[in-house]
Structures are given as C-alpha cells and as structure tokens.
Design a binder for these strands. Structure first.
Lengths: 335, 335
DNA sequence: CTGTTAGCGCCTTCAC
DNA sequence: GTGAAGGCGCTAACAG
C-alpha cells in the first residue's frame, strides 16, 4: 500500500504539500502541484480513507439503516438515498436492522462508531422512547423515517398511514361497499396497526360494524396474502371488497379469490397499498395508495444535510397518501 | 466523544491495559479488568472504529457492490449477504454501482479505500478485462458474482444463463410450440445477451427459424414488458408462446396480451425467469427459471472468507438453472 | 508558497 | 500483569 509519504518523496516535497494538493487547501505553486499529481499518478496513490477520517473527525459519509433489506419498496428507497447523498458529495453506507428493534439500534450504533457524519434511520420496530434515547445520545444528527416523534418533528419524516387507509376504505364505502374485508400487515408493527386503525375508523365513521371475521393478519408478502385470504374465505363472513395493507398481499389474495371462484372486481373489489410497479398492470388494475417514498427519502436526506451544516431547520410536514384509482374497484351492492 | 484515554484515567490504568481488556489480548488481572469494564460502562465508551482499523490495518468488514440497488431479487440477495457476513463476525458495507461499468469500478475502489478486508462484486456491466484489472490491482481479495472469468474461476460465482434459457425454451418446444416470441432484457448486458442466446440456441437446435419480429427488447421492468409485448403484437408475427428474460416483464406482457384479447395459457403460453415470490401466484401460475441467488451469494461470501483467511480455494462450479413448471404453459399447436 | 510539528484514537512491541 | 513509547496515514496550525 503506497502512502502519502511515498508520494511526497517521489515528488520531492513534504507530506503537507501533498495533502494540500490532494485537498485543494492552501496555495501551492502550479509546478509543484503538477509534480505531485504526477507522482500520485505514477505510484497509483489512493488516499487512506480511514486515516483521513480519523484526522478530520469526519468520514464524509452518511449512514442509513433500514429495518429490513428485503422490504417492499426498499430498492426504490435505497436508490433515491444513494442518489441524493452522492449528489451532496458524500458517501452512503447502508445497514440492515434485521426487523428487530434491538438490531435496529445496534445498526445505528455501528454507524456511529464508524463516525458517520449523520444517520438516517428507517425503522419499523423501535418505540418512541428508544428513538428519543438515540436522539439524545448520538453525537451526530439523526433523522428518522416512518415514525412520528412529536418532540422532534424537525427530524421525523413520516406518512399519515391511518389517514390514507381511512381514505381508501372510505372510497370503497362510497362505491357502495359495506362488507369490507381487510388483510393487515404484521400487527407488531406500528405501520400495520395504523393502517388497520384507518380501516376501522372508516367503518366506524360510516356506521358500519367491525367484524373480526373479516380481518386477517398477513406478513406483507405474497404467500402471506394468499393464506390470509383463504382464512377470510374460510371464516364465512361475506365481503364484497377487500382492503390489503400492501400490494404484494393483494397478489396472493387474488389467487385465493379466483381459486374460490370469486370474480374481481365484480364479486370482490380490491384495494392495496404502496402502488408498486406491478399494481397498474395486474388484472384488474389495482387501486391502491401511492406512497411517496422517494419524496420522503429526499426530504430526509435534505434535512439531514441541513442539520449537518448547522442550517436552521423547521418541523417537517407529514406526507399524505394519494389514492390511485384503477379498475379493481367496482360498485358495491349498496351503491 | 469519550476516548480510551478517558477510560484509562477513570479506571486508574494505562491506555494499553484498556486496549487489552477491550480486545481480550494479553493477560489482565481480573480485578483491573473489572475496573476497566466498569469505567467503560460508566462513561458509555464506544471504541472508535476508524482508529481501530487504522491501527490494525483491517476494518473487519467486507464490502459488497451491486450493479443497481433496485434490481429484481436484490433484496433477497442483500439479506443473504448480510446474514452470512455477520455470521462471520464481520460487517457488511454495501454500495451501488449505478448500472454503469465506470461506477461499478469506482464503487469497488471506494470500498478499497475504506480498507475493506475483502470485496464482493455483483456486476452486470463490467467487461472481463475490467474485472481482470481489478483482480490484479486490488490489494484485498475480490470475488465476482454473475460473471465468468475463466482465468479466475476460484473467484467467480456465476449462473449458466444461456443453458437455463435453452432449457426453458426447449421445454416450450417440447410442449408443441414452434412460434415462440421472446422479450429480452437490456441487450447491453451480458445476462440479457446470454438468455437471448439460449433462446436462439433452442430454436436452432430444433430446426426452427429465428424471426426478428418475434423478439423485442425490454428493460427488465413491468411497464417495459408491457411495451415490448405490444410491440410484439404489433409486429404481426403470430406466436403461441412467450419467453421473457425475467418475471417482472411477464407481468407487463400478460396485461398487453389480455388487452389484445389473447387468453393465457390457451392462446399464449408464458415462461419467465427468476421465480420471484409472486410467480407462483399469478394467474396462470408462472412457469419460470429458478435462480439460486441465495446459494450463490452464500457461496460467494464463503469463498471470500476463505480467501481472507488464506485457506486453499478451488475453482467454483457454475450454478445451473432449475425449471419451475406451473400452469402458464399449455400444449402448443404442434403437440 | 512550503516544511515542521503535533496530534486524531487506537494497537503493539518492549521493558519493568 | 502493566506502563511507556512509537506508529498506522493523514490533516492542521504555525512558522518561515
């Protein structure tokens, strides 16, 4: 491994000078600058990132921890993050939270140990208290996605899950449905709870009774949606519409429904959540809630950079859902 | 930020001793060990990862670069990598290659600058020469996924793309299809080229002429599959089966076909590639090629660790496809 | 403009 | 068993 010392010797200057041309700091005569560059070139020198970071106490990178690498719109989210971070001239370093609060915290700590300049945390599991604790103990800025911590609204980017679910189900009701089934996500996660709450609120708001037999818990995955839907069918409580906590589960549910001889959307209308790329191409084309994850991530990164630069920051506005209405919803029996 | 020096003072010992108990190296009296631990605890000490790495010249982490964060089975792949790497007590650090050879190389270099102990590269774009150059210049072990470099079979984990495509299309032919259309991936990538080559080889092997009008280039995404399929339909060359370079494009194609009034699998049989989670739940259930990405990633990590530990390594066997036969293929007109 | 001198926080001989 | 001292590779005053 060739070091700055090697370069300095080859160019006949001191390490300090090499450092100067490397970082473009201070004044260096053009001729010696050239000499240094040439030496670096000839030796194939690459600065040692660790040494640089240690000396400057800044790794010029921001860390991102995701609750689970294999989440639904995870790829999109990651791409957006990479793009925005790199646009700022910094590096992105990503870590997986293994879908448990402990590991999510540990992941954050690891990034902190790595001296990331700032950290962005997309959590599905941490409690508000745990997040607060991080806010208080971390020596670098932290921005949280997907959770609302009222005491730190300037560092929280979140989505009005319940409201969006409420609107989706209200739409179904508006179309004449009253017997509406629901497949939830893992009920251990706030996100799934909130979407379920939105479903319940919509029913309640329209004077429709809540029936346990019309609700099944899924795992946000395709096969899970299939199983949950079979459960629903087995329960025997009739339904003319089905609201799912995400699009993937709708795909599974569609198969269960068609195996049961139900036609869609005639006999069963469908509503999803996420608006994943395939949604518009399913048959029937899926009505769903659009989740502006790229915008959310962009906001998160932008705010993070602000905090990093000690610019004034204001509370962030919650993101709201947007219904994408497509062919999967037909008029219901009460239209 | 509290350092080792703080801990040493608090515990009334030297930095060296703190270092010893931290790393479990050397002999330390139990009582002083306890004192040190207590001091670390009380101060909330966390070792500075950068300083550690710089001093030991090892970051205890392995780097992974992916051609594109938003690839199809990307999440699965990443999860597997994280799991295997962490099982070895190291950290995983991931980077995006932005789907260009230059950025893929740059990403590798960045990881090298970070002094990763080893690097795993999943590339879609780099040429063999570029990969060879990396093999020669990187100071740490490199293992490549998804590319076969004959001179370095012990560091290449790859899949027999062409053979798998050949088998899939041969199966269609065996079922009585002769007019078989094909939607390829981006033809700039070796993967797409190889799958197309497999398609052509299968046709040729069965004495069937190749028709350009039955081939359209897609982009591996759902909407791209839709567009490509419409193109195929517009071309006017009839086909009783459609082979797609990946499952996502099949989803798009299915919509185009049904919009054109084609029934599946009766009028058009379908075959995909990837066996993504939704494949078995589409209607008709999709026949596709299973790609053992987790096994491939596991192999890659395992081999990487071997190289790291200077254990003897042998050439890696290529991975082969496995057909998942489901309802999307009906008997063809020549059955 | 450029070189010298101290660190950054930790590990690691080498003595005691 | 423990401490002192030097070094990992680079940056950052401070002098000239």
């Amino acid at each position: 491994m060739i070091t700055m010392l090697d370069v300095s010797r080859r160019a006949g200057v001191s390490k300090a000078t090499v450092s100067r041309v490397l970082n473009g700091t201070g004044q260096v005569k053009q001729s010696t600058r050239d000499a240094v560059f040439r030496a670096m070139e000839e030796l194939g020198y690459r600065p040692n990132f660790l040494a640089q970071s240690l000396a400057t106490r800044s790794s010029n990178s921001i860390g991102l921890v995701l609750s689970n690498f294999d989440g639904p719109y995870f790829g999109k989210l990651l791409r957006q993050a990479a793009k925005d971070v790199e646009a700022s001239g910094k590096h992105l370093i990503v870590t997986d939270g293994h879908d448990t609060p402990e590991d999510e915290i540990e992941a954050v700590r690891l990034l902190a140990d790595r001296r990331c300049d700032a950290i962005v945390l997309y959590t599905r599991h941490m409690s508000e208290a745990q997040i607060m604790r991080l806010f208080e103990t971390l020596p670098m800025p932290l921005v949280v996605i997907n959770r609302d911590v009222p005491q730190a609204r300037d560092r929280c980017v979140f989505f009005e899950q319940q409201q969006a679910a409420f609107e989706a189900v209200s739409y179904l009701i508006g179309q004449g449905h009253r017997e509406i089934a629901c497949i939830t996500g893992p009920l251990g996660t706030p996100t799934a709870q909130q979407r379920l709450a939105g479903y319940r609120a919509a029913l309640a708001g329209h004077g429709i009774d809540y029936h346990e037999a019309r609700v099944a818990e899924g795992d946000n995955k395709v096969p899970g949606g299939y199983e949950a839907c079979r459960q629903l069918l087995a329960n025997g409580a009739p339904f003319s519409a089905l609201f799912c906590s995400n699009d993937d589960m709708v795909i599974g549910a569609m198969r269960a429904l068609s195996e049961a001889g139900r036609t869609m959307p005639e006999q069963v209308s469908l509503f999803g959540f996420d608006d994943q790329p395939a949604a518009a191409f399913l048959q029937p084309a899926l009505s769903t809630v659009y989740l502006p994850i790229d915008a959310m991530m962009e906001t998160a990164i932008r705010q993070t950079l602000r905090l990093l630069n000690r610019q004034p920051v204001a509370a962030l506005a919650p993101f709201t859902g947007q219904l994408r209405l497509r062919g999967s919803v037909a008029r219901g029996p009460f239209a």
